[in-house]
Design a protein around this nucleic acid. Structure first.
Lengths: 194, 194
DNA sequence: TACAATAATTGACCGTGGTCATAATTATTA
DNA sequence: TAATAATTATGACCACGGTCAATTATTGTA
């Protein structure tokens, strides 16, 4: 029996990922070109697609890893106990997601699972976000008449909404977070919202 | 002074739109090819892009018109007085939006305005949806502690969320609408949700 | 009607993501 | 070590959206 994947392959894949990550760090996500990646990695174009289904699959990996870093940071300081804390805890992640239109599009495109038990990297971060936020909601000063998971899903829906509206020229960064807060006040503490 | 746009141009544009609409009716939105449109319209490729900024701009027009038809139908029977009615009133529109992944992607991409006072066709339908839903909420049996516009925006956020999750193979059409209803129960009638 | 000015159209050309038959490399077996 | 099988890499090629300098059609003016 052959080894399923040989060392050479693992190295090639790692090199592609490294080169792509560097290019993104230098020029942003939207400017990434497959041809540039393979040239700098010293492999043929076809090799790229032997390792990643398409360009989006690579972006998913990289963006998914970046989101995970932001979630680590958001989780770090313990529970967010109220709406204000929740908003500010989510802020760096939302700023990242809206840094480039291209990033947001990729994220939205991959926020749902493709097949059961086959969550892509970005869909995984969405599940993780639900878990984290649901944990905060369960422990904090929030309404208790609805399950914390449903509430967490709502938080995510409002985050996406606020980010989508952010891409109007009229709406700036600050406005995005204010809008997010208005939603959450009404969603997470309906009794106080009046 | 010259006429700004000549009759010839208007006819060409109309022909392109007609041909594209027919092709979509036959093969779906995602299968539309610019080359096919210009061939069937009997014009050169460049002509297409003289009339539409890009392929997306054409899709925006066509999908925007389709959404408007669904909104007409949703508005027709008067106000939706409770969550169940609201869900079933939105149902045909949401089914259309999720008929093809491609359609949903185009819609999400264009749901926000590009520039103030420059709402694209799809962004306009989103504004119209807010107005319609806000009207229902103001007149119907819904919470009154938050403005109806904020509530309507939330309804839209939940609709998008439910549709995005729909594109998992695990979730079917029915589940999408059930999920939508759960969100709205908690959003529009927090007192009853317990 | 001739001429100038503007609008509309053309199609060769390009950028870029993605494919696939073939070649090269690596591992297994005899 | 030679023969064989499986894995990996190659790069010419294609599909398709989009560009633009050049050409043609239309309209206003002398």
């Amino acid at each position: 029996m052959l080894k399923q994947t040989q060392k050479r392959s693992i190295e090639t894949r790692a090199k592609l990922l490294r080169v792509a990550t560097e290019a993104i760090a230098a020029n942003g996500h939207g400017a990434l070109r497959v041809e540039e990646v393979v040239k700098n990695a010293g492999v043929a174009k076809g090799t790229f697609f032997a390792h990643f289904k398409d360009k989006d699959a690579l972006m998913e990996l990289i963006i998914g890893a970046q989101i995970d870093e932001y979630l680590d940071a958001a989780e770090e300081p313990g529970c967010a106990k109220n709406v204000d804390e929740l908003v500010s805890r989510m802020r760096p992640l939302m700023d990242f997601m809206t840094r480039e239109r291209y990033i947001f599009d990729v994220i939205v495109r991959h926020s749902g699972a493709a097949v059961k038990e086959e969550l892509g990297p970005i869909a995984q971060t969405f599940e993780r976000t639900i878990e984290i936020v649901a944990g905060w909601i369960a422990a904090g000063d929030f309404r208790k008449d609805v399950s914390e998971v449903l509430l967490a899903e709502g938080v995510q829906a409002f985050a996406v909404q606020a980010m989508a509206l952010h891409f109007c020229a009229i709406n700036n960064q600050e406005e995005m977070h204010l809008r997010f807060k208005s939603y959450l006040d009404a969603w997470l503490n309906p009794a106080l919202a009046s």
